[in-house]
Each structure stands twice: as structure tokens, then as C-alpha cells.
Design a protein around this nucleic acid. Structure first.
Lengths: 278, 278
DNA sequence: GTCAAGCGTTTGTCCTGACAAATGGCCCCC
DNA sequence: GGGGGCCATTTGTCAGGACAAACGCTTGAC
């Protein structure tokens, strides 16, 4: 309706990531004034805008493009690279969407003043604390089917009482238990082999089975450890735990997973970054 | 480097929102086959692509575009509206970015199969549980300056020991305490009037003072309530609390706020939605 | 000295046109 | 009847041009 109503601007978060990765990178390399070496390969199957975006992103990452530095106007940039302006704009826009750059009409495009640099190109939800060098270990506690409770049925969109898969895992890092993971999956979605579940993450298995993950709803809270949780996680009963419930959907809108997880508060925290969208 | 490396796809979250809003909307209105009434107003200052995007979004919202429904090809749509294809694409792309639609080459664009529909056009971080009908109340416990501790100094990018603002607030809803909010701000950013702080949220005040919020880093965890927290929140000592630490940056990369908050686990949870970006 | 108007610069929006690549269904052949 | 190849459809990518709107600086007036 109204042109620029925007009362409060809805934040858009660039990524949610795993536990306790705290990379305070200094990056004091300031901007040189020589024009950034940029080039595109027209024989490559990689889209031109994507090539450019990657190069710019790498330049920001390595400090060759200093925070606050102007990018130079799009027309010249396009001419220099032998590209059209829309292509250059598409490249820059993707970086703006990632929160790496800010555009200002009449001023130019500048690199966002660092510090915000995204924590990592983090990806899957937590089976990739592996990427943080945590060497995760998983032990499968249960891997069966059971009748869906009302809560699970509602989340997965199946009939209450119908059989669904249940996987319960204990995830450890450095030999210490970190989280207790309960997942319910609709029947017949993919074969759940205990050995595979102990070797890798659930999301990777799902993707490998051709499931196209699309979105997820999460709810993060806290609770006191009950008896069973305390035993599994080697915490005293009543210890504060971080809880996460998540329903994941695929492309077609099917719910493909309902997870109900608890983490040891001492050893885990969710870190993520929000962008305020224009 | 590689064209479509994408190992694991980094999720991108559409928004983070407030507490305990659970709107399970049925929306069983299925797709009619009559062509959606769409039109654009070329005399309006609102960009054409934005007009179109809004209309499509409204149609999805109201169920006039059923989940899974094909949108019809872009060429025809453009012709029907008297627009060019790039403009139509820009409109659709913005909805794809929001997670409302999925494009498939050779197939078309379809509305994502509901259920995922975003929880609300949520916005500010939590002073808008007001929007959830919670009628929040804030009481300011402290509003002073104090020397920055090492942690605060690092977060705000000021010298350790230099004076920074400190605001401590207790936020309640329905007369019950919900959260204890501690915020540190760099000196001179904006005047912090106790009366204003009790009447509205910190973010709104900052925006009203011309601060352009850009991004934030958050860390969410859990802990047991200490003495002081327990008293303020009317919980027993040792009760599980949900904790959140956040550093917020403006356009220029300046840190404009460092918050350290605790929430009653019984009364509060973070809900948000992640999108897996292509 | 201060404030306002003007101007160049840069991004925002929009158009037309074209070819490439992926998908899915149809048809033909075996 | 089943399988493979062809083809129409649809989105993905890219070019080149045009005008509008916003910003910042400079110039000019008071």
C-alpha cells in the first residue's frame, strides 16, 4: 500500500550456526588504492555475475577491499570488465544481500565496516561443528518407529498415532557429551541406518537421499534437566539446558523432520547474525 | 571456484522474532483457476516491481494463490501487466528470497506449500511483543554511565575503562516479569531518557535518533539464575534462564549497542525461520 | 559567516531483445 | 508394453540503453 511504510524493519538473518565458534579476526589490512584485479572467464560455465561476486567477496575477506572503501561506480566497473551494468549490479546485489556491502544513491557502494564479517560460511545445522574442528561423535540411542504423539503428528502433518521414525542420538565432542537429539521423521522418507547416523549428520543423509531442504522453523528456549537428560549429558538434575525444537520442510512444503534437542548450556550456544533488510 | 560446490547449503533466516507467538493459521482456501486480478499503477511513486510483489504476497497470504499453484510464465505475466520481464522477475525474485515461492527451470514458479508461511512481518527485536498483544511494560532499574569492562569495551570498540552508558531494564507482560535487559551503549550516541525508555523500546529510540541499524551478532544460550536475577524475575535461584548477548552495528560498522539479556525460560522462547539459500 | 540553490555523480528503476540450460511430456522405435 | 530420444516450455543469464531520484559538494546570495 503505502510506499515506504517500513515502520520497523524486519531483520533478516544471514545464517544460523553452530556452537562456540568465536573467530575474532583482526584484518587490519587497509585499502590500497590500486584498482582491484578483477576479471571474468567467459568460457566458464559459472555465471559471470557469480564470478564477479566471488572475487569481490574474496577481496573483502582478504582485506584487499578495506571496510568503508568505495567500490567505484557500476558503469566504470562494467566497462572495465567488459560486462553490462545489470550483470555488475547483480553481482553487487548478492553481496548487499549477504550484508557485506551497503549501497547509497549518489555516493556509491561501500564495503560494510567489517566487524560484521560473517562468522563462517556455515552451513548445515550442527553436524558441522566438525568444521569448527570439534571432531563430533554420535552414538545412536534409539532408531525405531513408534506411533506419533499429537505434537509430532501436528508437526509432521501425519495422523496422530500413525507410525513415524524416531531417532535418538547423543552427540559428543572431545569425548564429552554435548547434546541429546531426538528426531521424528515421516515414514518412508529415507532409510535410516544406524551406522550411517553415527558417521555423519542427519541433514547430509537427507540431502544424499534427494531430499531438498527448503526452510525450517525453530524455537529456542531453556529448561532444567530431567532425570534422563541429566544422566545422558552427565549433568546434575535441574541443570540449565538449552532446548531447540525444529520442523524442517522441503521444497514442496512437506515436513521432513521434527527435532527436539537439548544442549548442555556450558558447552553450547547458538550464534547467528541478523541483517536488517532494506 | 567450482561452479556449484555448495557442499552444505548455508541457511538464511528470514527473521527472528519474539516470544511465544504461535499462529497456526489454517488457510485451506484452495486455488481458483480464474487469473489473479493484478494491476500496477504507473503514476504511483512505488516501484512497479514492488507493487507486483506486494500483490502477489497478499494473494498468497489470503489463499487466493494456493500453495503449490503455478504462477504462470513470466513472459505472459509481463505481457498481461504491460511490464517487461526483468521487472516481473524482480518482483518474483523478492518473494523467492522471502521463501514464499520456488522457481524451477522448465517448470515454472510455484507458491511454496504453505505451513512455512512466515510467522509475522516481525520487526524489531522484542519491544514488539506489543504486536503480539502482550502489552509490554518496562521499568528502568539503572540508567547511568560507568567504565567499560574488558568485555563491553571489546564489543563496543572503545577503550577499556572509558565511560559508556548502561541501561538496565526489567520488562514485563501482563504484570509478570519476563526479562532482565542490560544494555551498554557508546557515549554520546543518543540521549537516554528514563521516561522514554519506559515508554518504548530501545531500538525505536535509536532509529528515531537517526541511527541506521544494519546488522547484529547474537549468541543465545542458557544459564542458571543467580541471586540478583532470581529476585528480579521472581524465579528461584538456580532456575534455568534463557540468555542472549547481542552486539548491534550501524551502517558504518560502528557498534551501537551491546546487550546482555536473560529471559524466564517458562515465559519466553526465540522463534525464527531459516531459509536454505540456493 | 551562514544558509540555500544548483549541479555533477551515482545508484534505482525500467525497457527491449536474445540465447542457453533444464525440465517434463510426447512420440517413435524396438 | 517399455524405453529412449526429440521438442516445447520455462526459467537463467546477459547485453545495452534510458530516465528518475537521491546525495554531496560547490557556488552564490544575503
Amino acid at each position: 500500500m503505502a510506499p515506504a511504510s517500513i515502520g520497523l524493519s524486519p531483520p533478516r538473518c544471514a545464517m544460523a550456526l553452530s556452537g562456540q565458534a568465536n573467530y575474532a579476526r583482526p584484518v587490519t589490512a587497509h585499502g590500497t588504492d590500486r584498482p582491484l584485479p578483477l576479471s571474468v572467464d567467459r568460457t566458464s560455465p559459472v555465471p559471470l555475475y557469480f564470478q564477479l561476486a566471488q572475487q569481490l567477496e574474496a577481496a573483502v575477506e582478504q582485506g584487499r577491499l578495506a571496510p568503508g572503501a568505495l567500490l567505484g561506480n557500476e558503469i566504470d566497473l562494467a566497462a572495465r570488465l567488459g560486462l553490462s551494468r545489470p550483470t555488475v549490479r547483480q553481482a553487487i546485489q548478492s553481496l548487499v544481500d549477504k550484508g557485506l556491502m551497503v549501497r547509497r544513491r549518489g555516493v556509491g557502494t561501500q564495503v560494510v565496516h567489517s566487524k560484521v564479517r560473517r562468522p563462517l560460511e556455515l552451513s548445515s545445522l550442527y553436524d558441522d561443528l566438525e568444521a569448527a574442528g570439534q571432531r563430533p561423535a554420535t552414538s545412536v540411542l534409539r532408531n525405531t518407529t513408534e506411533p506419533a504423539t499429537a505434537e509430532v503428528a501436528a508437526a509432521l502433518g501425519v495422523a496422530e498415532g500413525s507410525e513415524v521414525h524416531l531417532v535418538e542420538r547423543l552427540r559428543s565432542a572431545h569425548g564429552e557429551p554435548m547434546a541429546l537429539l531426538r528426531n521424528h521423521l515421516p515414514p518412508g522418507l529415507l532409510p535410516l541406518v544406524t551406522e550411517e547416523l553415527e558417521a555423519t549428520g542427519l541433514y547430509r543423509l537427507m540431502r544424499a537421499s534427494g531430499v531438498t531442504l527448503h526452510s525450517a522453523r525453530q524455537s529456542v528456549g531453556a529448561r532444567a534437566a530431567d532425570d534422563r537428560q541429566a544422566r545422558a549429558l552427565a549433568e546434575p538434575v535441574g541443570a540449565p539446558l538449552l532446548t531447540m525444537e525444529r520442523t524442517t520442510y522441503d521444497d514442496s512444503g512437506r515436513a521432513v523432520e521434527f527435532g527436539s534437542h537439548v544442549y548442555r548450556a556450558e558447552r553450547y550456544a547458538f550464534e547467528f547474525q541478523l541483517l536488517v533488510r532494506a
